[in-house]
Design a protein around this nucleic acid. Structure first.
Length: 338
DNA sequence: AAAGGATACAACCGCCACTCT
DNA sequence: GAGAGTGGCGGTTGTATCCTT
């Protein structure tokens, strides 16, 4: 037997509030306050409404100092930052935005902000994310490693991603085929038909919802999403990601199959290859010595972490980053979301 | 101009935690 | 300690409005 309803649903009005109802509620609370009991308030205020409905109407719409209308850039930033760190704790987020209600922020996130972040991810429309990477980044130089730089595995681990090693014959049968690299290229030194799954650590992000986060990178996937001028490469992660080692290593050793390694090594492929190889290293399978660093990204580490978290959050099925390098401005890189 | 789809936002629902008896 | 009552919260739905064809 379920619990009794908070009110007699047959005898309460539902749906949008009329101006008269608003006025009654406002007047009553203005005179008497809520009395610490929302359930009994409607009767006292002569409102045929559920107490919960009164509470919601007051908190979200009628109470003083409610801010309506457009969210500012600063508010966007705060919401993104907090969402990235604590998830959908709307009441906590609202507490950091005076005048905004949790409902407001939740609606704003679900209808606009999330799409805004996702929309700019499409490299084809070349819309920039809210924060372009524009800094004094140095081009990736695999021969100049610095032990001061964080490795990508560290970075991902900071964001709750960690690798677990899965043998091919133990790979789940439900593995979606489109995430497998079907290349038959056997010239790479790692053709063990091994898969790697990267999962989210519980607790860091919304537990349960993100518990199968992972990342992949492969010939096919990268080729399919590279920009036309070849200056854009991809690093992806999502819910169901199995990585074929062969695919990864082909990057490390051969470079991008469609663009060639030389052109992109210092900017993007170096980065992508780095990520794969470095994460592989956590399982003891790394062979390429030149993929250790996130060179040049140290100043933006927190931003990258934040973006990783946000992108993870807003992509239930798959997610991608695109690092775009403007060849005319060698120190400018832009990060796109998918 | 009309129809259908998309979007924005108010409101509702159900669960959980806390308090009181 | 148990159970009822209530507030608070996040997810979801309903609907008015806007946009596109």
């Amino acid at each position: 037997m379920g619990r009794a309803p908070c009110c007699d649903k047959a005898n309460v009005k539902r749906g949008p509030w009329s101006p008269e109802e608003d006025a009654k509620l406002k007047e009553f609370i203005g005179k008497y306050g809520t009395g610490g009991n929302w359930i009994s308030l409607p009767q006292k205020a002569d409102l045929r409404r559920c107490g919960k409905s009164c509470r919601l109407r007051w908190l979200n719409y009628l109470r003083p100092n409610i801010k309506h209308g457009e969210f500012s850039e600063e508010e966007d930033r705060i919401i993104c930052t907090l969402y990235a760190n604590i998830g959908s704790k709307w009441s906590i987020i609202a507490s950091q935005l005076p005048g905004r209600t949790d409902n407001d922020i939740k609606n704003y996130w679900n209808t606009k902000l999330k799409k805004k972040l996702m929309g700019i991810s499409n490299p084809s429309n070349q819309r920039k994310l809210f924060l372009p990477f524009q800094s004094s980044l140095q081009p990736f130089q695999s021969t100049h490693q610095s032990t001061m730089m964080p490795t990508l595995s560290q970075l991902f681990r900071d964001c709750g991603l960690f690798p677990t090693h899965v043998q091919a014959n133990k790979a789940p049968s439900s593995l979606p085929s489109n995430y497998l690299c079907n290349t038959t290229n056997s010239s790479t030194p790692f053709i063990n038909n091994e898969y790697y799954r990267f999962e989210m650590q519980d607790g860091l992000m919304n537990p349960g919802r993100f518990n199968n986060m992972g990342m992949f990178r492969g010939k096919n996937e990268a080729a399919s999403c590279s920009s036309s001028d070849g200056s854009c490469s991809q690093m992806s992660f999502g819910n169901i990601k199995e990585v074929k080692q062969e695919t990864m290593m082909s990057y490390l050793h051969q470079g991008h199959p469609s663009h060639g390694f030389e052109d992109e090594q210092k900017f993007i492929l170096g980065y992508g290859g780095t990520s794969c190889g470095d994460i592989f290293s956590a399982t003891g399978n790394r062979e390429n010595p030149n993929h250790e660093l996130l060179q040049g990204y140290d100043n933006n580490l927190e931003e990258i972490k934040q973006l990783l978290r946000i992108s993870s959050s807003i992509n239930n099925n798959s997610g991608s980053f695109y690092f775009h390098n403007d060849e005319n401005k060698t120190n400018q890189r832009t990060m796109y979301f998918d």
